[in-house]
Computed example of a mutant assay.
Amino acid sequence: MYQLVIFDFDGTIFDTYEAIEHSIQLTFRELLPTHPAPSHAAIRPLVSTGAPPGDTFRALHPDPDFDETFWVARYRELYALHGQARARPYPAARDVLDALRARNVPVAIISNKAAVAVKAALAKSDLLEYFPDPLILGHGLAGVGRKPDPSSFTEILRPRLKEHTGREWAAEDRVLMVGDTLTDIHYARNIGATVCWCRYGQGDVQACEALQPDYTIDALVDLLEVVKVAP
């Protein structure tokens, strides 16, 4: 039995691709109306890497000297206003979380997405109750670095787990990282976790398969079999 399951958010628990693409295009239409908004074909490969918004805008913007900080901030505002409604949990998300709760397996979220956006989406779908607030880590929280940097686990989550569960968390504890992109697979390896790759998500299939994740699932509900068969 795994002693902890860490979820990515985008492309893992929630289908957010439409929300992300729509918000990127809205940002271009508002801040650079004289330039065509990027197409699906241009956006998709960038999102599939799990890279942060700044990387995406740098790749898409025609001016290398654009104000990246302002663009990313406006993107996040537009996502909250117009993208959030397009994000939805994958089928069986509640069933999976109910089953993990029944097995007394703690769950956490570590995302490169803004923590406020993650919590808003979970609350909108009545799934926030499954994740203790201290165990939801994302952009904008003090000390939380971007995956695949392992510090969000080693320096932030592990001490919070001790406080939440009342016991020490050692490196040899069985941790399952569930995610859909190269970033998540590299992160799992960096923290010494078993990795469950979500083929159904937003990641580049060929690149992720090449990294030989420990488990591959084609639907979120399949995670229950991974937990069940864990040695």
Results as ranks from 00 to 15, higher is better:
residue 214 D to A: 12
residue 156 I to W: 05
residue 151 S to L: 15
residue 186 H to D: 06
residue 153 F to R: 09
residue 212 Q to M: 10
residue 192 G to Q: 03
residue 193 A to P: 00
residue 221 V to A: 14
residue 216 T to Y: 02
residue 164 H to M: 08
residue 190 N to C: 02
residue 183 T to N: 10
residue 218 D to C: 08
residue 213 P to K: 10
residue 164 H to F: 12
residue 185 I to E: 00
residue 191 I to V: 12
residue 222 D to S: 11
residue 158 R to L: 05
residue 200 Y to M: 02
residue 163 E to W: 10
residue 171 A to E: 12
residue 229 V to M: 08
residue 160 R to E: 00
residue 221 V to I: 15
residue 155 E to T: 10
residue 207 A to E: 12
residue 168 E to S: 11
residue 204 D to A: 09
residue 187 Y to E: 01
residue 174 R to C: 07
residue 179 G to R: 09
residue 221 V to E: 15
residue 178 V to F: 03
residue 156 I to T: 10
residue 201 G to C: 08
residue 216 T to S: 13
residue 216 T to W: 01
residue 198 C to M: 04
residue 176 L to F: 00
residue 207 A to M: 11
residue 219 A to I: 04
residue 168 E to R: 11
residue 192 G to K: 06
residue 227 V to F: 04
residue 194 T to Q: 05
residue 169 W to Y: 00
residue 215 Y to V: 04
residue 189 R to L: 10
residue 176 L to Y: 01
residue 172 E to M: 10
residue 205 V to T: 12
residue 163 E to D: 15
residue 159 P to D: 01
residue 201 G to V: 06
residue 179 G to I: 12
residue 158 R to P: 00
residue 182 L to C: 15
residue 202 Q to V: 14
residue 194 T to D: 15
residue 167 R to A: 08
residue 183 T to K: 03
residue 226 V to P: 03
residue 227 V to N: 01
residue 200 Y to P: 03
residue 194 T to S: 13
residue 214 D to K: 10
residue 165 T to I: 12
residue 152 S to G: 13
residue 181 T to V: 08
residue 181 T to S: 15
residue 221 V to S: 13
residue 193 A to W: 01
residue 198 C to A: 14
residue 186 H to I: 09
residue 154 T to N: 13
residue 184 D to R: 08
residue 154 T to H: 14
residue 187 Y to G: 01
residue 151 S to D: 11
residue 150 P to W: 05
residue 209 E to S: 12
residue 215 Y to R: 09
residue 166 G to P: 00
residue 219 A to Y: 11
residue 168 E to G: 02
residue 192 G to Y: 01
residue 199 R to P: 05
residue 170 A to F: 15
residue 152 S to C: 15
residue 181 T to I: 07
residue 159 P to E: 02
residue 159 P to S: 02
residue 197 W to K: 06
residue 218 D to L: 04
residue 189 R to C: 07
residue 195 V to T: 09
residue 200 Y to H: 00
residue 164 H to Q: 14
residue 197 W to V: 08
residue 197 W to H: 09
residue 153 F to G: 05
residue 191 I to Y: 03
residue 181 T to R: 10
residue 205 V to R: 11
residue 150 P to K: 06
residue 182 L to M: 14
residue 193 A to L: 02
residue 212 Q to T: 13
residue 203 G to E: 04
residue 160 R to P: 00
residue 209 E to A: 15
residue 199 R to D: 06
residue 214 D to Y: 12
residue 156 I to Y: 03
residue 210 A to L: 01
residue 224 L to H: 11
residue 169 W to C: 00
